[in-house]
Design a protein around this nucleic acid. Structure first.
Lengths: 155, 155
DNA sequence: CCGTATCCATTCCGATACTG
DNA sequence: CAGTATCGGAATGGATACGG
């Protein structure tokens, strides 16, 4: 009865997203996947997470269609976890979290890893939200249009 | 011993970000704050979360400088929770999660709330990641430049 | 090397009752 | 209305041990 409230059927897309990646590990796994990691052991070593929960999270991400299982590219008999198109769609979220952390969570001069462009080696520019007319978009420029709330939906 | 691994000192900005907002509720609270909610009861009703956890999360977000306590704008004697500049910096993350959910988590024709521009009432355009030269940026165009890993840091 | 299975401590979460 | 206090069940997370 005290189980986590499922947001799978929420009327808010953000809530549904968080139902899948809204935990401590999933987005870190996805980060590492963007970083080229594919093998169980790579994730395990990178994250320092217990193997049982790593297995659990990977399974869930595969189930949700964020990761896909593919035969190993090298000779080994195991499978690899690769991002699906759906998974790659999380790239802006990953980059957004990274940029926010860079901007607000480090002391001045404190070093951290950086996402850079492959060719130039220079940092990826900050995300710029734009309106339809191309102007910068601030939170105040927007609001959420909710559902008509027919019966008892979208509480 | 089985306590959540703190990522506060991680060398990856994304990890630090998740240390603050990487749970089920924080980003939903922030979403509602962007949506104009300020009062304890508003969050409580919107999220349907137990009051003790809501209080805990709000306290933590205030402590982390994402929300700020301000005297009530109306006559009431209670305080209000408002986004700080740091908190508003999460807007791209919120929008990114929303867009990802819209694109991948709904059946065709299934209704959901939409983030729209205040003036036109039209949906906010999708986030476009760009390289420094203005071209579209894909995950493959990037890599993470990690720290030199001096001693035993950035494990 | 890739997981699965088990044990145990801690944390999370929901429901409820309670104070001011 | 805005929280705090408490309780119990569920999930999380770490540390192994074990099998393919």
């Amino acid at each position: 009865m005290a189980q986590r409230k499922s947001l799978k059927n929420d009327a808010c897309p953000m809530a549904r997203s968080l139902d899948i990646v809204g935990d401590q590990w999933s987005l870190l796994i996805i980060r590492d996947a963007f970083d080229g990691m594919k093998r169980f052991g790579e994730f395990q070593q990178s994250l320092g997470v217990a193997k049982n929960i790593l297995a659990d999270r990977l399974k869930n991400l595969v189930h949700e269609g964020v990761l896909d299982l593919a035969p190993a590219s090298d000779g080994s008999l195991y499978q690899e976890y690769v991002l699906t198109a759906k998974g790659k769609g999380l790239f802006p979220v990953v980059v957004g979290l990274r940029h926010w952390g860079e901007a607000h969570l480090y002391a001045k001069g404190e070093p951290h890893s950086v996402l850079v462009e492959r060719e130039s080696g220079k940092p990826v520019p900050k995300i710029a939200l734009r309106m339809r007319d191309g102007q910068a978009l601030t939170p105040e420029d927007t609001f959420v249009k909710k559902l008509p709330a027919k019966k008892a939906a979208a509480h």
